[in-house]
């Protein structure tokens, strides 16, 4: 079922009436949802770059001067979409009892010897973009590396002007950081 732009806006904000929300949840999915969402989001952001893909709350993969970068709706840019954007974020790592208790008091607290709660924050606006709960020492999780060209070429049937290989380039950041260590 097609969903109007106004309803989509309210749906995402959590303010759409429940009967309509339920109808959208339970109804057949609309084939043009992506285009409708893209249009809505493009209107909502305050910068001109074309959104190629909404990545997660507040983050978008956008076309910027021939590159594809991850950008926050506040305008902060995280760099090439193929490098894990988290590596360019600010982080609060909850790795001791006191910092964990702020979120998980008493019986609910994980064990800081085993678990680390990593909060990735936008350096531009301070919004919390992701919470990662992993074993201490586990590499930063690269949640999603979408294959944008396959998506646009094969799935949407409207290829983008330039193709970029979908390969994990996070190691480029690590190499830079590791240079002084070698």
């Amino acid at each position: 079922m097609a969903v109007s732009k106004d309803d989509l806006r309210d749906l995402f904000a959590g303010t759409l009436a429940w009967d309509k929300t339920k109808e959208i949840i339970s109804g057949p999915k609309d084939d043009d949802r992506f285009e409708a969402v893209l249009e809505l989001l493009q209107e909502q952001v305050r910068w001109p770059e074309r959104i190629l893909l909404p990545l997660r709350e507040h983050l978008y993969i956008v076309e910027s001067g021939g590159s594809r970068i991850v950008k926050c709706d506040c305008g902060h840019e995280f760099g090439d979409w193929r490098r894990n954007w988290k590596m360019s974020a600010a982080i609060i790592a909850r790795d001791d009892i006191a910092s964990m208790e702020e979120i998980y008091p008493g019986l609910r607290r994980p064990d800081p010897n085993l678990c680390e709660i990593r909060e990735f924050i936008c350096p531009g606006c301070g919004v919390l973009l992701d919470v990662e709960s992993v074993p201490v020492g586990y590499p930063v999780v690269f949640d999603a590396l979408p294959d944008i060209d396959v998506f646009y070429d094969d799935w949407l049937g409207r290829p983008l002007e330039d193709h970029q290989d979908c390969e994990d380039r996070t190691a480029e950041i690590i190499s830079k950081w590791a240079k002084p260590l070698l």
Binding site: R109, P110, I117, V127, V131
Partner: peptide, 15 residues
């Protein structure tokens, strides 16, 4: 003791 990584888009996993 390691919480499952179940938060979405900036949400936290349950305790």
């Amino acid at each position: 003791y390691i919480l499952p990584n179940l938060g979405l888009g900036g949400g936290y996993p349950g305790g």
